[in-house]
């Protein structure tokens, strides 16, 4: 597999802030991979993905996206490769209606109008929002707005999709509908590389790999199960413990058998059932 994103030694200071937001961070994301970035508030997750998209001018280090080295000259080519969905549904809705918003990126790219109409329609169908194409944003729920944002990105057909806490302001139903779109995208033929930033461990567990960010550095990376199994790591990076770990501890307090290492939810179910059968 080829590397889709390569970050080397990236360092960034916000103006007039002593602490660097990114501190010599290096990492790689493979083509077609789904990576989740986790870490406590202020650990540098958003700054990292913004730097990769050329949205902050980093002072030190190197970013390569789809083989293009990020420089002031190449920044618009890099951005063509990446589609970003941000946290606040209201602050990224540019168009006056759903269809206008989906078209915004296409307009910027200078796509001819007849092609644009097809792409907008197709993208809206993919996120299940075709029936709302004339709606103004003030008459949409947060989840619907986020799906429109996703449609705007799908229409551009980027090789990478970045979700920066795209579901964190939504209700459970809204979250579900957005995650369903991502799952569907992953199953498509040309599945894009996905980077999702999230505080929701269930959502993170769906990724193939986790990157734990702390104080602007990559503290660890690995399969979700590997990361969740490392209690010391979770504690030191301010992450919550997964449900199965907490359940195992409660079982131990009850004096009952319990697994002595991390199990995913389904493994835990099987383990419990096997133990039950030995009674």
């Amino acid at each position: 597999m080829a590397a889709m994103i390569e970050v080397k030694n990236l360092t960034y200071h916000y103006p007039e802030v002593a602490q660097p937001a990114l501190d010599h961070i290096s990492l790689t994301v493979e083509q077609g991979e789904w990576v989740a970035i986790v870490g406590h508030n202020g650990s540098g997750k958003s700054t990292l993905v913004r730097a990769i998209d050329g949205l902050v001018d980093f002072s030190e280090g190197e970013v390569t996206v789809a083989g293009i080295k990020l420089t002031p000259d190449s920044v618009w080519d890099v951005r063509k490769q990446i589609g970003m969905v941000f946290q606040n549904p209201d602050n990224q809705f540019v168009g006056a209606t759903v269809a206008d918003d989906v078209a915004f990126g296409l307009e910027n790219a200078g796509i001819p109008r007849d092609k644009m109409i097809q792409k907008v329609d197709a993208a809206l169908k993919q996120v299940d929002m075709a029936a709302f194409s004339d709606r103004e944003p003030s008459r949409l729920s947060g989840g619907q707005k986020q799906r429109v944002a996703l449609a705007g990105i799908i229409a551009m057909n980027p090789s990478i999709i970045v979700l920066d806490e795209a579901t964190s302001m939504l209700d459970p139903h809204g979250r579900q509908t957005v995650m369903d779109v991502i799952t569907k995208l992953r199953q498509s033929e040309k599945a894009p590389t996905i980077i999702s930033i999230t505080h929701d461990l269930d959502e993170a567990a769906r990724a193939q790999r986790l990157i734990v960010v702390n104080d602007g550095q990559q503290l660890a990376t690995g399969k979700p199960a590997e990361i969740f199994a490392n209690e010391a790591l979770l504690a030191s990076s301010g992450l919550a413990q997964p449900f199965s770990t907490r359940l195992a501890r409660s079982l131990a307090q009850q004096g009952s058998v319990h697994p002595d290492h991390y199990l995913s939810d389904t493994e835990m179910e099987d383990w419990l059932w096997q133990s039950h059968l030995t009674m």
């Binding site: 913004r50 540019v94 915004f104 296409l106």
Partner: peptide
């Protein structure tokens, strides 16, 4: 930021 991320450069060339 969101507009820039979606390729908005101002100026001409927009359809």
């Amino acid at each position: 930021t969101a507009m820039e991320a979606r390729g908005y450069q101002g100026g001409d060339g927009r359809t």
